[in-house]
Amino acid sequence: MYAIVEIAGQQFKVSKDLKVYVHRLATEEGSKVTFDKVLLVDDNGTITLGAPAVEGASVEAKVLQHLKGDKVIVFKKKRRKGFKKKNGHRQSLTQIVIEGITLGAVKKAAKKEAAPVADEAEAPKKAPKAKKEETTEE
Rank of each mutant, 00 (worst) to 15 (best):
M1A: 09
A3M: 02
I4A: 05
V5W: 00
V5A: 02
E6L: 08
E6I: 09
A8N: 04
G9V: 04
Q10A: 13
Q11V: 08
K13S: 08
V14D: 01
K16S: 05
K16H: 05
Y21R: 15
R24K: 11
L25W: 05
T27Q: 14
E29G: 10
E29A: 11
S31H: 03
V33Y: 03
T34Q: 06
T34S: 09
F35S: 03
V38Q: 01
V38R: 02
L40Y: 01
L40V: 09
V41H: 00
V41E: 01
V41I: 09
D42T: 06
D43L: 08
D43Y: 05
N44R: 13
N44V: 12
I47V: 13
T48F: 03
T48N: 06
T48M: 07
G50K: 05
A53S: 12
A53T: 14
V54W: 00
E55V: 13
S58I: 05
V59D: 01
V59C: 03
E60N: 11
A61K: 00
A61F: 01
A61M: 00
K62F: 04
K62A: 10
L64D: 03
H66A: 07
D70N: 13
K71D: 10
V72P: 01
I73D: 12
I73P: 07
V74T: 13
K77V: 13
K77E: 11
K77C: 14
K81C: 05
K86W: 03
G88E: 07
R90F: 04
Q95W: 02
I96P: 07
I96E: 06
G100L: 04
I101Q: 00
T102S: 10
T102W: 01
L103G: 12
L103D: 11
K107Q: 14
K108M: 13
A109T: 14
K111H: 11
K112T: 15
K112D: 11
E113V: 13
E113N: 15
A115S: 13
P116K: 03
P116N: 04
V117G: 10
V117M: 10
D119A: 15
E122N: 15
A123Q: 07
K125L: 09
K125I: 10
A127R: 05
P128N: 08
P128C: 08
T136Q: 12
E137T: 09
E138M: 07
